[in-house]
Nucleic acid binder design. Sequence first.
DNA 1: CGCCAGGGGAGCT
DNA 2: AGCTCCCCTGGC
Length: 284
Amino acid sequence: MTKRTIDHFNLAQICESGQCFRMTQRGEDTYCIIAAGRYLEAEQRGRECVFSCGEEEFEDFWKAYFDLEGDYSFYLSQINPNDSYLRNAAEFGEGIRILRQDLWEVIASFIISQQNNIVRIRRCIANICERYGEPKKNFRGEEYFAFPEPGALSCLPEDALKECGLGYRSKYIVRTAGSIADGETDLGKIRRMTYRQAKAELLKLFGVGEKVADCICLLGLHHMQAFPVDTHVRQALEKYYKRGFPKRRYKGYEGILQQYIFYWELKHARSPSEAPRPGRKQEV
DNA sequence: CGCCAGGGGAGCT
DNA sequence: AGCTCCCCTGGC
């Protein structure tokens, strides 16, 4: 067990922000996360968090995964006080962190995310892992599945993943897995590229367009200047930033602001009735 | 059954 | 850059 007191860190918000489709709520304030073949449970008690791993694994892996070294109070402090929309959105999601996820997992996950909703995306990914991922046991002795390596998917017929619910995205995953498995796409090289270079390279992948490439840059490469524009964010920008979002002002960390906006639009603006109310806990 | 939306993308011009 | 058409699944 490892315990930490962390500012600007909220498991519920991270989970619901929809950046990691393998983070799920387990108990009232407890979440489990499967990442890079590892399994973690974490419980939030106000500013305190208890993680189900030893200090060493926490320091070596999870600390970076949750981006605990990132200065989120700086990002929050830079928000234009006159921009009430952004101020609200940021306050609402002030515990969000941009997770440092595995590049291949992010590529596959966000190819699957296109024209898809979060519940289904989670199910698709769970299906793929159960079918093609390596089975493992967590500290409770329960079975869980790692995300399959590219080679485990590249050998499949292009339509095989339709059985996992991917629909037409099946061939995108199989072909992209192939281009990584056979070395045509070098993830190591992409990791060393700048944002612009990496995005251009990712756009070559079958099934990856503008929005997904930006998601991959932000969530798989931690390029904080990536600003993915999906339908929710587009509508918000059209509504609140008719003269364009002030990217200049937030140069270098536009991505976290995009997450605050996305999270606000997803949780609050679109369905106010389902938004969490102060002093009331959400049902499981 | 049809219709449509769900965190777009490919393939054109 | 903008346009069409398109892929599939689940909910209504």
